[in-house]
Simulated scan of single mutants.
Amino acid sequence: MYLVSKIEDTVRVPPHRFEEPLREVAAEILNENYMGKIDKKMGLMVTVKEIEDIGVGRVIMGDGAAYHDVVFTALFYKPELHEIVVGEVIEVTDFGAFVRIGPMDGLVHVSQVTDDYINYDAKRGALLGKESKKSLEEGNHVRARIVALSLKERSSETKIGLTMRQPGLGRLEWIQEEKDKAKKKRKS
C-alpha cells in the first residue's frame, strides 16, 4: 500500500549550494538522506513529493551551512500482511521466484507457486508444474498474497513471503485461463 505523509525536519544546505533554488536543493538533500530507508510504521520512503514550507535559514557557529526547518510530504510504500499485490518475476531459482512488488522484492517459495509438484528447469530458468505444465519465468506478471512480512531498517534485510496457491492468484495468464474456463462452464 502506498501512503503519503507530512514530515517536519531540518535540512543542512552547504554554502556551495546557496546560489541554487532552495526548494530543489532541499528536496534533493532530503531524498539523499531518506529515500530507500525503512520506517517500521510508514514503510519504505520512495520519494519526497513536495516541499510545503521552508523556514528562514540559521547559521551555526563553526559551520558555514544554513539550516532550514522544512515541512514536506513524502511517498511511502508499506506492504501489509495478507495484501494482494501484482508484480513482475525478476529472478527464478531452484527454491522459488523473486517478484518485484513496487519498490521492494518478495519471494514465492516453490511450495507456494501452485498446488502441483514443481520442478526447476535450469536451462530455461523456469519453474514448471509436473501435471499442469504451468511455467513461471523471469518477466512473467503475477498476482500474489503477502503471507510473511519482516520489515527491517535496511531494505536488504527486509523479507516478504508471497503465495500464489489461492484462488484468483498466480501468473496473470493462469488467472485468465481459469476465468475463461468458468465462463465456458456457465454457458454450457
Rank of each mutant, 00 (worst) to 15 (best):
M1K: 12
M1H: 11
Y2V: 07
Y2Q: 06
E8F: 09
E8K: 15
T10I: 15
V13P: 06
R17N: 05
E19T: 09
R23Y: 13
R23I: 10
A26S: 14
E28L: 13
L30P: 12
I38H: 05
D39F: 07
K40E: 14
M42S: 09
V46E: 02
V46T: 05
T47R: 11
K49T: 08
E50G: 05
E52H: 12
E52F: 10
D53R: 14
D53N: 14
I54E: 06
R58G: 02
V59D: 07
I60F: 09
D63R: 02
D69G: 08
A74V: 04
Y77C: 10
K78C: 03
H82M: 14
I84L: 12
I84R: 15
G87H: 03
G87C: 03
E88C: 02
I90Q: 01
V92N: 05
F95G: 00
F98T: 00
V99F: 00
D105H: 09
G106T: 01
H109K: 06
V110E: 03
V110G: 02
S111L: 02
Q112E: 15
V113P: 07
D116A: 01
I118M: 13
N119S: 05
N119K: 08
Y120F: 15
A122L: 10
K123H: 09
K123S: 08
G125Q: 04
L127N: 06
L128M: 14
L128K: 15
G129C: 01
G129S: 04
K130G: 00
E131R: 12
S132R: 09
S135A: 06
E137I: 09
N140F: 11
N140K: 05
H141K: 13
V142Y: 00
V142I: 12
R143M: 15
R145A: 06
R145K: 15
I146N: 03
V147T: 14
L149F: 00
L151Q: 06
K152N: 14
E153T: 03
E153P: 03
S155R: 11
E157M: 13
I160V: 13
I160Y: 02
G161A: 06
L162A: 02
T163A: 01
R165V: 10
Q166H: 08
P167E: 14
G168I: 01
L169F: 11
R171D: 10
L172N: 06
L172F: 05
I175L: 09
E177L: 10
E178I: 02
K181E: 12
K184V: 12
R186E: 14
S188P: 08
S188K: 15
